[in-house]
Simulated assay, not measured.
Amino acid sequence: MIEFLKGGKTLNGIKMGMKIDELYSILGKPTNVSGEKNYGYIHYGEYRYGFTDDIINEMAIEFKLIEKPFEFPNLEYKKYDISLFENFKIKSKSKIHKIISFVNHLQLNWKAQNGIDKDSFTIKIENGPYIVFNLYDGTVDKITIVDGHQND
């Protein structure tokens, strides 16, 4: 998850622009495939890979599908040449403040995005993915990137 947040270009060894056959050879049999022959989604638990014409063009972590929390023990943060350490546990129902604290601890730059969907709150990680939150309950919905949008 950390590398995906930092760059948005790789998720579980899968890179944007890879062919579906490469994805299958790296990750094996998916838990679910949805869509049509030329476009759709390939799911591996909470990980989703979108494709068009046999090419991976979207990657996401869908938090509603997380069964086991992501745990980051003793994650280092440097401030004024002092190392600070904190433990993080990211779950399916993690709240906005917990995720933003995690992103800030990683020292990533981000900004809020105001889009069409007013039921969501979105932050954009600089040169990385988007993090989408559900405004009704304040939980994280997904971390996602669509090909070509890392630098928006």
Rank of each mutant, 00 (worst) to 15 (best):
E22K: 10
I20L: 15
I14R: 07
Y47R: 06
K37A: 08
E46C: 10
G17P: 04
S34K: 15
D21F: 03
M18K: 01
E46R: 03
M18Y: 11
D21T: 06
N32D: 10
L27T: 11
K19E: 13
I20A: 03
Y44Q: 04
G17H: 06
K37I: 13
N38T: 12
K29Q: 14
Y49R: 05
L23S: 12
L23V: 15
E46V: 03
E46I: 02
K37N: 11
M18G: 02
G40I: 10
Y49A: 02
T10C: 09
Y24K: 03
T31D: 09
H43A: 08
I14Q: 08
H43T: 07
N12G: 00
E36T: 10
K19F: 09
L27S: 06
M18I: 02
S25F: 03
L27E: 06
T31Y: 00
H43N: 15
K29L: 08
I42Q: 14
G45V: 14
M16E: 10
D21W: 01
G13V: 02
Y47K: 13
G13I: 01
I26N: 09
I42G: 11
M16W: 02
I42N: 14
G35I: 13
I14D: 09
T10N: 14
K29T: 15
S34V: 13
M18P: 05
T10L: 05
